[in-house]
Design a protein around this nucleic acid. Structure first.
Lengths: 361, 361
DNA sequence: CTGAAAGCGCTTACAG
DNA sequence: CTGAAAGCGCTTACAG
């Protein structure tokens, strides 16, 4: 384990150094510099001198020493998995919320990465060795979350956890309802053949988004409104390749009038395939995503999607770790945030004539 | 400054606890558990017992105590500015490179945010209180980088620094050349009227990208190829509003055949305006960005742009902090990475007939 | 008003 | 083969 080389780096000043320079004890320096109650009992004179010398020596209390003494690092951990591309836009949103809230409470944030929740579950306990005061798990997928994984001495919160982790509050969203509402909008605009490109099989989010879609069709759709689902995995690549394959298998049959994708990336992948097929969005086919990542706002056309308050969720996770009493948690140990349909330019009424599935180049 | 409440949290086991349980000293436990040289001199019997008890008690060496003793946190800092939206995609790319490399060396990464480099410069020193072993400054804009800001006891590296910081290696890219090359491609495809939407005034990147653009036109363009520059600020919003305003002022005049934007976000903003104006990209107007963020790959059409190896740059910053001797630094204290033009779908030869600037709705 | 002592949990010499 | 001591830099009682 290599280290930052500090051979030639000068040592920072300590309380003892300051005490020595002023001709006073380290504790007096500590009292003054911490503005602790004790410091009022220190003469104005020494007080001034200590402050002055500390400033001159650029004194800063050593974080490790302080942490050891106070048993508190003033640091929160944020753990997520990296795929091939690293942490994604979803994580970035959460991170931004976490940083904002942590900053308000003067807490640092350290980011931990795992490659696979189940395989690397053991690492979680490793992080809880005093370097953080609490850990936020971002979208953990723990098949069998044994309590052994979670040291008792560190508080945890999860965001969008895939399974209930005993003793850990989970912050999630009403994905089912968001999905229902966005599909309802499609139905109300006259869409009848709404294709769903689903997320990674087995994931809770996949199930919930699918459930909302099915419920909307069952409740609101016309008699013949049957769910049509293509299984994908939340990625741009698979969404586009699966849609492409589906279209190739169904050339000449009825083209869906709208596609509801389980997330934004997938929706963008679909838009790419539709463009290749010479279909215009939204005029020929409407496309809807889920998540409202930045990409949804910068795509052409801008994407109609379902927003999840990811920043707020990240900030709430921080509050839950720092001030558990100030956050209302549901009886079942979850906090559920609302989702919000966001209408942009990728949805229009269905074309008056049903189009056939075109050939792809 | 509120703290994580740990009233009811059990205390983790210490070396003393293990020693006590085994009936041996804390140092023996330390020796065994660190597999230090000394541990060979410990009997197989005690060794086994210590290991067993440590496992049972789920012992992990306390990070703060270790850091205090070793004067090393095994943590690197990454500091960047947040705009209204928080950290952006550029930062995320860098973060991913940093995390990857830090992971290889068993180092943690803590993320620090500033709102303004100059106003918050004092915070930099605050971060150097032992909680990190080195700090990476992401795109710092320090007008007058006083050495006081940078404590001597912490090593620094900067990425894309806007000004030379004395004693701090800066990792940058050949933006000028990247800009030159991408504009050369446009010229070689026959583009004559190439508009440049520039970045934030005063920024080094803005100047370099502008310089490459001008150089390409001067060197390769036809006689009448005059630079046309609209000042913007690297944001989607301003790029689009400025282009819109420019077009409104120039309705009926010659429309540029290509737009070279100082970054991807701006290019996406331009594509939005062009679509509103009924112009097709790339058939009517070609659009080029800079950075190759994720958005460049998910836009419609996908964006031709200039790639910077941001992840590699982040990873290099880590190596520079941990193994300065292993990284080659130029004489002037910089490391310059190459940029790479990436051809996608947003560029085509210019239309055969020059188009007029259309009315905008 | 100020200082000596003890302790946070670990490690590194140094004894035996 | 194993332990007692000292120290990393800070803070919190406790004395005076």
């Amino acid at each position: 384990m290599p280290r930052v080389s500090r051979q030639n780096l000068p040592k920072p000043a300590t309380l003892a150094d300051i005490g020595r320079a002023v001709g006073v004890s380290a504790m007096s320096a500590s009292a003054v510099l911490n503005a602790s109650k004790t410091s009022t009992r220190i003469s104005e004179e020494t007080r001034r001198k200590i402050l002055e010398v500390a400033a001159r020596m650029k004194y800063r209390p050593n974080a490790a020493a302080r942490a050891l003494n106070r048993r508190k690092m003033n640091t929160l951990g944020l753990a997520g998995v990296v795929d091939s591309g690293g942490l994604n836009a979803y994580f970035l949103e959460v991170l931004n919320g976490v940083l904002e809230a942590a900053g308000r409470f003067d807490q640092n944030v350290t980011v931990f990465t795992l490659h696979d929740w189940n395989a690397d579950a053991g690492k979680i306990a490793d992080f809880c060795d005093g370097r953080i005061d609490g850990l936020i798990l971002v979208a953990p997928v723990l098949t069998k979350p044994s309590p052994d994984i979670f040291p008792k001495h560190t508080p945890f919160v999860s965001l969008h956890s895939n399974t209930k982790i005993p003793g850990v509050v989970n912050i999630e969203t009403n994905e089912d309802l968001g999905s229902f509402e966005i599909v309802r909008q499609l139905v109300q605009q006259g869409h009848t053949d709404i294709l769903h490109i689903s997320g990674t099989p087995g994931m809770l989010g996949t199930k919930r988004r699918l459930a909302g879609y099915k419920r909307a069709l069952a409740t609101l759709g016309r008699r013949d409104a049957r769910p049509m689902v293509i299984e994908a995995d939340f990625s741009y690549e698979i969404a586009s390749s699966e849609l492409k394959a589906w279209m190739q298998r169904n050339v000449g049959k009825r083209m869906p009038t709208a596609i509801f994708c389980a997330n934004d990336s997938g929706a963008l992948g679909c838009m790419d395939v539709l463009a290749q097929a010479g279909l215009r969005v939204p005029r020929d086919v409407s496309v809807v995503g889920f998540d409202d990542t930045i990409a949804a706002r910068t795509s052409m056309p801008q994407l109609t999607t379902v927003q999840q308050p990811l920043k707020l969720m990240g900030a709430t996770a921080v509050e839950l770790l720092l001030h558990p009493e100030s956050v209302k948690v549901d009886r079942d140990g979850t906090i559920v945030f609302p989702t919000r349909p966001v209408s942009r330019a990728s949805v229009a009424p269905p074309p008056s004539e049903r189009l056939p599935v075109p050939h792809l180049p």
